[in-house]
Amino acid sequence: MTIAWRHVEPAYQKQLQLLSLIDMVLISAIFLPIYYFNRTASWFDSLWIVGIIWTLVTLFFTFFWAPRRYRFTGYAETSEALHLRRGALWRNSRAVPLNRIQHAEVRQGLTDRFFGLGRVAVFTAGSGGADLSIPGLALAEAERIKAELMQTIAHEPEPIADVDEAQND
């Protein structure tokens, strides 16, 4: 069975770029005061080297990591499971069988709202956070997926007892 992967919204790439930029700015916001108060220390003499490294890392995330991650991110709905693949360097494709889904929700964070995106989070039993979270969806698409999942869960047939269990009852 081949899986028909669907791409997420192109705005997701921009969102990733923005998020990585925010992270890099935060890192420099932590380091700059440290530099300022330690100007006399010899180990921090060469600010320009640190600056170059910072720029290179930022460029790496903006023009390599974000597009790559965006390109690979995809989801698929089959009759049996919900699939999600994500990652830029460390790739992971996850499959959650529909009959193991406990509940689903649509989430919209601050940057999600800025780009008009939403994400669907799906929970199974036994683990802490969301087991599968599809990012970068148009809000309407996210709502659709959630509604469909809820529909499937609601119409799931009652589980049948184990054969042995039935005999013993």
């Binding site: 460390w90 790739r91 992971n92 996850r94 499959a95 959650v96 069988p97 193991r100 199974t124 683990s127």
Partner: peptide, 14 residues
């Protein structure tokens, strides 16, 4: 009874 199944590729594995 499995809850979900992953296929994971690290850069090294890939």
């Amino acid at each position: 009874k499995a809850q979900h199944i992953d296929v994971a590729e690290s850069p090294w594995l890939r």
